[in-house]
Every structure is written in C-alpha cells, then in structure tokens.
Simulated scan of single mutants.
Amino acid sequence: MQSTTINQATQGHYPIPEKMRAAVLFGPGDIRVVDRPVPQPGYGEVLVKVALCGTCGTDLKILDGHFPLTPPYGQFTPGHEWTGTIVALGEGVDEFSIGDRVCIEAHHGCGRCENCLAGKYTACLNYGNREKGHRASGMTADGGFAEYVLHNVSALYKMPDSLSYKSAVLVTTAGTGLYGLDTAGGYILGQDIAVFGPGPVGLMTVQACKQLGAANVFLIGTRDNRLEVGRQLGADHIINSRKADPVKTVMELTKGLGVDMAIECSGNVATPQQCVQITRRGGKILFVAFYPGQVTFDLSAVVRGDIIMYTTRGEGGNNVKRAVSLAAQGRLRGEELVTHEFPLENIAEAFRVMRERVGDPIKIVIVP
C-alpha cells in the first residue's frame, strides 16, 4: 500500500514549497516550463531538490516522440541524469538522511519479476508498468528537468563530499559503460579495446577501460575536439573516421589481429559493421547505444570469427555505485565534460543547441 507520509523530523532545514517549476512535454518538440505541485514521496521514496540534470541523446528521442512508454503529453517531465539533495523522506526510508547529496540510477525495477530478482532491473519484465512498481526516471516516470523529483530509495547513491554535482551527472553516464563491461566479462586487463563514439558515454567508457587495465584504447569518432578530450582522458590512439579509415588504421596498429573488444557507443548505423571488421577472432563486441533505425552488418563474419556480441541497457548491475567509487578516487573525470549550462527556463534553447551542435557541446546540463 502506498503512503504519502513525509518524515518531518528535519524537513525544516529545507522548506518545501507547494509549487515548483518543471519542464513538461506537451507534444513532439513542444516542451514548456510550467508550475506543477511539488510531489509527495510515497513508501520507499525520497524527494530530491534537483541541483543539475544532464541532457543526452535519449532526451532528444523523447522530445521528438520516438521513445516507448513515456507518460501522456501534458503530464510528463523528462530528464534521467540528475543529482541533488534529499529534502524529504517517505515512510520506511532509513537508508538516507535529509540533506544527503545523492546521484542516481535512472531505473528502478519492479522487484518482483524474474529479471529483477536476477539483478537485471534495466530489463524489468514489467517495464513501464507503474501499477507493478516499475519506474524509469525521465523515461516512464517524471524526471529531473524540474526543481524537485521523486525517486525510489533503491536507486540512489550518497555522494562523497569530494564529488561535485557536475561530476555526479556523469557518474550516471559512466554506469552505462561499466554495466556493459561488467556484462561482457569485465576482465580487460592487458587487452586492446576500441570505443566508437566520443560522446559522454564513450568518453567515460574510455576512462573506465584504462582504469580496468586495458593495454591500448582506440577512440574513434568524427569530431577532433571530442577526440582530443578523449586523448586527455586516457585514449592511447584517436582516429577521426572522416580523415582516416578506422578499420585499416586499427588493423595496422594491432598488426593485423584486431582488438579484443569493440564497444559501440555512437549510435551510428554504419559503425556496427566496423566493429565486426576490427574485432579479432574469438573477441567481443559490446553495444550500448540506441539507433535511429535498423542496422545491417555481416553476421556471417561474426559467426566465422567466433565473436561474442553483448548488449546492455542503461546503468544496471549496481555499476553506478562502482562509478561513484572510481570518481571519488579521482579515477573517473566527469566535470570537465560539462561544456554548457542552461537555466531550466531556457531548456528549449538547450535542446536546440544540443541538436544543432552549436559550440560543439559534450554534456549540457540544466540548472533548476
């Protein structure tokens, strides 16, 4: 049974208004900042005052109306890469205190299906079913493009004092790459890895691979600025695919063997075939990106090469916790990827800048 009881014990430190400003999706491409009631935490939930909410390519799909199981237009607030401070506790919450700074996993599984019980909550069999308890913040439930947001206690992580809010936004992003690596075996010590796509996921994955002991990390993309950031973050070789053939270059640098694992973070429909071509026999390909349409590649070559393919969705497997630890140790750098900040009232302009790549943004954050 859901409860709306709020722990009032220390709430006075953070006065909570009745109304808040929130970005609401009214139709494809139509996002407006309006007044909404501040939500009340139910059993096992907390209310968080949002400090920052990052934007990503998935948000553009949601904005354009091309993402499944989002709530109805006129009711839904997107935003799934947010961080902030707990200001109220729902009934049954004793894992956190009011005033705790937290970062998140976007996905909270139903906790009752076979996949959730096996720890695969980003593949919850009740995905999008609110009645059975599933929530995906900013995707199937209201998210962080607002002053306040609700979240389940199971999908929160307390931030160490050394971690900034900007870094915490990228910690959620880092969880995506770490979950993929975890699923694909995790043990990449001494291996050669290729990462396609120097966006936020790719750049955080490059760092994770180096911290996990990869021998050589190849970063492949189309924008020199992002590739150079990748070099600064640990990539051993950067390849601009508009200036050099990435398949030929990687094969030359690996003496014809190819990489042990290719990680596809770009979402470009042409790159899966390149992954096939640069992965050595017996190697692995990991897909973590979403694509705008169907993808074609040579599956027979995958079979002939005895290559194993993996896919993962989101930041599952408790890997945000691992990302928090790595970031706190200074082993994952996220703050420097935040290139643009916009106030919540200007969120439509932020999405325009993101879509049109004005000023070559890497990570745009919204400040409520």
Rank of each mutant, 00 (worst) to 15 (best):
residue 206 V to G: 05
residue 364 I to A: 09
residue 196 F to P: 00
residue 49 K to S: 12
residue 283 G to W: 05
residue 87 V to L: 14
residue 99 G to P: 12
residue 213 G to H: 07
residue 305 G to N: 04
residue 308 I to Y: 00
residue 330 G to A: 06
residue 50 V to E: 02
residue 11 Q to V: 13
residue 31 I to R: 04
residue 79 G to F: 07
residue 90 G to T: 08
residue 192 D to Q: 14
residue 336 E to C: 02
residue 328 A to N: 10
residue 215 A to Y: 13
residue 323 A to Y: 06
residue 331 R to Q: 13
residue 278 I to Q: 07
residue 243 K to D: 01
residue 174 A to I: 07
residue 31 I to C: 07
residue 259 V to Y: 03
residue 123 A to W: 08
residue 323 A to N: 10
residue 3 S to P: 06
residue 154 S to P: 01
residue 357 R to S: 12
residue 148 Y to Q: 12
residue 327 A to L: 02
residue 185 G to R: 03
residue 208 A to H: 01
residue 75 Q to N: 12
residue 276 V to Q: 00
residue 18 E to C: 05
residue 243 K to W: 00
residue 64 D to H: 13
residue 227 L to E: 00
residue 88 A to T: 04
residue 340 H to N: 10
residue 92 G to D: 12
residue 243 K to F: 00
residue 81 E to Y: 08
residue 284 K to F: 02
residue 147 E to H: 09
residue 39 P to E: 08
residue 179 Y to H: 15
residue 348 A to R: 15
residue 296 T to G: 11
residue 230 G to T: 02
residue 5 T to K: 15
residue 190 G to S: 15
residue 258 G to C: 11
residue 114 E to V: 10
residue 228 E to Y: 05
residue 317 G to T: 01
residue 214 A to C: 09
residue 27 G to K: 13
residue 95 E to W: 06
residue 60 L to K: 10
residue 254 T to V: 15
residue 345 E to N: 10
